[in-house]
Write a protein that binds this DNA or RNA. Sequence first.
RNA 1: GCAGAAGUGGUGGAAUUGGUAGACACGUUGGACUUAAAAUCCAAUGAACAUUAGUUCGUGCGGGUUCAAGUCCCGCCUUCUGUACCA
Length: 938
Amino acid sequence: MKYNFNDIEAKWQAYWAENQTFKAENHSDKPKYYVLDMFPYPSGAGLHVGHPLGYIASDIYARYKRHKGFNVLHPQGYDSFGLPAEQYAIQTGQHPAVTTEENIATYRRQLDQIGFSFDWSREVRTSNPDYYKWTQWIFIQLFNSYYCNIDNKAEDISELIKEFERAGNAKVDAVCDEDTPSFSAEDWNSWSSEKQQEILLKYRLTYLAETEVNWCPALGTVLANDEIVNGVSERGGHTVVRKKMTQWSMRISAYAERLLQGLETIDWTDSLKESQRNWIGKSVGASVVFNVKNHDETIEVFTTRPDTIFGVSFMTLAPEHELVSKITTPEQQAEVEAYIEKTAKRSERERMADVKTISGVFTGAYAEHPFTKEPVPIWIGDYVLASYGTGAVMAVPCGDQRDYDFAKHFNIAIPNIFEGVDISEEAFADKENTVIGNSDFLNGLNYKQATKKAIEELEKLGHGQGKTNYRLRDAVFSRQRYWGEPFPVYYVNGMPQMIEAKHLPITLPEVEKYLPTEEGEPPLGRADVWAWNTETAEVVNNELIDNKTIFPLELNTMPGWAGSSWYFFRYMDAHNDEAFASKEALDYWQNVDLYIGGSEHATGHLLYARFWTKFLKDRGYVQVDEFAKKLINQGMILGTSAFVYRIEGENKFVSKDLVQDQTVQPIHADVSFVNASDELDVDAFRNWRPEFKDAQFITAEDGTFKVGREVEKMSKSKYNVVNPDNICTEYGADSLRLYEMFLGPLEQYKPWNTAGITGVHGFLKKLWKLYVDDNGIKVTDAEPSKDSLKTLHKTIKKVEEDIENFSFNTSVSTFMIAVNELTAQKCTSRAILEPLLVLISPYAPHITEELWSQLGHEGSISTVAFPQFDESHLVESSKNYPISFNGKMRFTMELPMDMSKEDIEKAVLEYDKTQEQLQGRTPKKVIVVPGKIVNIVG
RNA sequence: GCAGAAGUGGUGGAAUUGGUAGACACGUUGGACUUAAAAUCCAAUGAACAUUAGUUCGUGCGGGUUCAAGUCCCGCCUUCUGUACCA
């Protein structure tokens, strides 16, 4: 019987689907284990071999955990709202729901043929109204919450309103906008409802505010900071400009400290945690208030070095700073205005590219040093960013290199306030070795002492206090797009109102085009039926809007990360229409035990999802603080591109080994035309494109034509994309799974080379032949040999360790070694071969199911207990000792395991080969490590 | 600039606590089977020297610790990833 993988794989995939083999139960006596892959976006191109890498790894782990007796939740679904489907809709007029549906079908077919153990009964799609109903619901909860700094958690906004009615906001310590005024209870109670709502927006966790946003004209939408790479849009590489717009924002900054602290409690990679730490950007220091001479204005700055306050010799404001126009003296007016105009014109990108040029202008105004009362000149300069801190810095040139460079450039004094440090060449920024001098009451103190003292003194003077600053900004939550979740929001007198939760979902309206309107409104502005009737609680025709009972609905939609910020909870109870998931399900599954995905989501999805989890916990909807306990980033699989070389100016191609010093042009050839020995199928290449049809090919003497190889990112344009469908047809899903793992460590970037798959495919054939010959199953009930038991048990040990360490590549080698050994031992024993199948089944589930059933078992192998490791089979009576001379291994010597150190030394020294090596010398020293090694020195 | 990861044969990679460097594969070469091919099987395969026995070198580079270093320490170089005038 031959190993007919196509039939076997189809058979078992059908079996799993029919029997719902991998359906997870929400009630079980078994311990739970939740394995999750990062949500795929179903793109039109389908999967290439790089995509399933993480899915295969998580699938192996999920299957392993089932063998280990866990109730495993291993779901899959689609992040199905998003820009590509919408761009496609704009180009073709097709509804994004239609193309999304088609793409999902392709994905599903491709995923199914790889044999994943997903519980498809729990599939979720973010674009499905049953799902986004709850995304809208969470949005409403955020709107109805504020962040209380005293309790350090989110609380219901009604609590805040009660307090405002009772005592105004004097005693309230909550996260709010910078410009929130102080008010009394009388003020509050005297205000109109609109005014009250305006104030409440300053506290709500999601709020509408005029913000400066990253506007991408080409995409017609706003982008979040993490959607911009090097000043251009991440998708498409379009220009991004700053623009003021009224937008929904998420008050994620309220959670900055908890998001930072939480990192200590989760097992994520260091690089990922580090990215999040940098993104949150905590800095501890002080806020210092400077008076402006001859003005009532004050300038507040944030500094991490209050200890260097006596080294201040100027201040710098961002050119956009609101005080600039107020304090600039008439003499400096023209110069300042010219500078502001010049910097405003420079795009973010230019400003970033050109960090070296120092520019700035003196405003003519002076601040007053809080301690010395000396005048401090106020400059403006674009090295100060309006968006960080207060948009102003106190410049200490002796202690900060940027201030130093600025001072040098403009000939500003650089007073030295450090003991025994030379600052004639550069600033001194070493906090550890700082001793302050020339600084009145701070003299002689180190960094820590001086910082503490300076803050105390500033507080006494009322000129500052200790402060912690975060780089993390509130996240803009609106997109001027069609294909996203609609907001459950309508407007009364310009004030946003939430639709009651019981009327959700508010489904996407139909539009005739997916472009912004002529007036520049988002695509939903084209919908005819997009108004809210508050009496009937229905979405009605816009013509009915009377602003009495029928109001306009929000035209923006939610961003891509809305749906993916909580989907991991939905899988726990995917069809619940009473709640986003039942309390029982949430209590049982808690959070994700293992999350596998790419590292590109470090500061986007993975931060927002943590934020929403903490919010849901605060409001009592979930029990957990973090949604994923452990996270692994899989590396990318790169393509191995193939190049053919065309002689410059001629339609003549030359085999790689004959190129020599001719001037040639490398041209990408499709990798499917190239075999394992880098030989090109010339005919296939000719037929590929008309211009190659009549080309000449200079081949090697043996008639072969060699291509060059280079490792690049896998991409259509490089013709190096390998489709898993072809691999499955030609070698089978089990070969694909094994090979993806065999390529190397999961986290590492590594090139794909289809040629190597014959290795694992050969292994599967050998495995098959161990069980089956021409007459069918050849497994017997014979007593296993000692050697076979040893092979089995060392394999159990190694594989178990490997899986626990996510070292899947080494377990594939271990299987190969085991099968090679058992084949050599001519093992046919059921007692060996049955457990071996269970070991391999997480990696190669189809072939093992088939052999398991052929061995006479009913039902799936997937829940059979993992074999128990028994040390006793590995105990050796002797050891083949490596004998080294001065650290160099010369020969080996078989000696009993229980031999004493002294006897080993004696035996080794008496051995002929030892004397041969020593050539009459007397060893100075003999090191014997029993069970390991012998080293002879001398 | 800063942070993180990584550098081992022709290639992917292995070596879990310092103890036989290169497991397991790919590729290459030779052989068996075959009319031939495919498939399968066997053997060799880090480099140099040597008829053999064997010797020398060898884990990015330079030092060091140790009986023993891919592994530990110090100083560099290169590549990848992320991030950046963050006060």
